[in-house]
């Protein structure tokens, strides 16, 4: 099964300073990157956003859900074949548009 990791961004307000889910994850699934880049100043830590980028590597241990102080991480699992079918359909649609 493949993880579907959803972060509730209304609850996860300052991910670069918190980043507990990212630090605890044994599979290094998360990335926390900036949504804005400024000239002459660093991005505010609240302009960062966290994603389960390598969700295909998620073991399903559940630690990210447990460690999140804001209850912002939601974890669901779907059968690999179901997701594979969805992506193959996306790809077919892409090819059709060429």
């Amino acid at each position: 099964m493949i993880a579907q990791i959803n972060i509730d961004y209304a609850l996860c307000r300052d991910p670069l300073n918190c980043r507990k889910c990212l630090s605890v994850c044994p599979s290094v699934v998360f990335v926390c990157g900036p949504t804005k880049v400024w000239k002459g100043q660093e991005s505010d830590s609240r302009e960062y956003k966290i994603f389960g980028r390598y969700y295909d590597k998620c073991s399903g241990c559940g630690d990210c859900v447990k460690v999140c102080p804001a209850n912002a991480v939601q974890l669901n699992f779907v059968p690999r074949e179901q997701l594979a079918r969805k992506f193959r359909e996306e790809r077919a649609a892409q090819l059709k548009e060429r």
Binding site: V31, G33, P34, F51, R53, D56, R80, F87
Partner: peptide
């Protein structure tokens, strides 16, 4: 300017698509 947070890190812009293709 807007940046794509999922593309952060060296040469990572392609990861989201790559993961999809891998799973498919």
């Amino acid at each position: 300017a807007d940046a794509d947070p999922q593309a952060a890190g060296m040469g990572a812009g392609v990861v989201a698509e790559l993961v999809k293709a891998r799973i498919s």
